[in-house]
């Protein structure tokens, strides 16, 4: 019974990931891709956390922390590059 709910949760996050990936490929502007990449890593973070809970592995949460930290730096670097390139 509970298994169904886990599948629904993971399915919804996967749906978001696929949608974000399509946007990453389609663009059309560079900022669109940066946003899509940012969203993908946030969704991946959510996916990892749900996984950690489902298989009862609290150690996976550290991965989510690192991902959150690195994503922010990456996004800021992209923004900096975007503004300076012109």
């Amino acid at each position: 019974m509970i298994e169904i709910f886990w599948n629904i949760i993971l399915g919804m996050i996967s749906l978001g990931l696929i949608a974000a990936f399509i946007r990453l490929v389609r663009g059309p502007y560079l900022p669109d891709r940066v946003i899509a990449l940012d969203l993908i890593s946030v969704l991946a973070m959510g996916f990892i956390i749900v996984y950690a809970v489902r298989f009862n592995q609290p150690n996976f949460l550290d991965v989510a922390i690192i991902l959150a930290l690195i994503t922010f730096l990456g996004t800021v670097a992209f923004a900096y590059y975007l503004e300076r390139r012109s």
Binding site: M12, L15, G16, A19, I35, V42, L43, G46
Partner: peptide
């Protein structure tokens, strides 16, 4: 999260 994906 799914909403964010559909939104983007």
């Amino acid at each position: 999260m799914a909403l964010a994906g559909l939104g983007i």
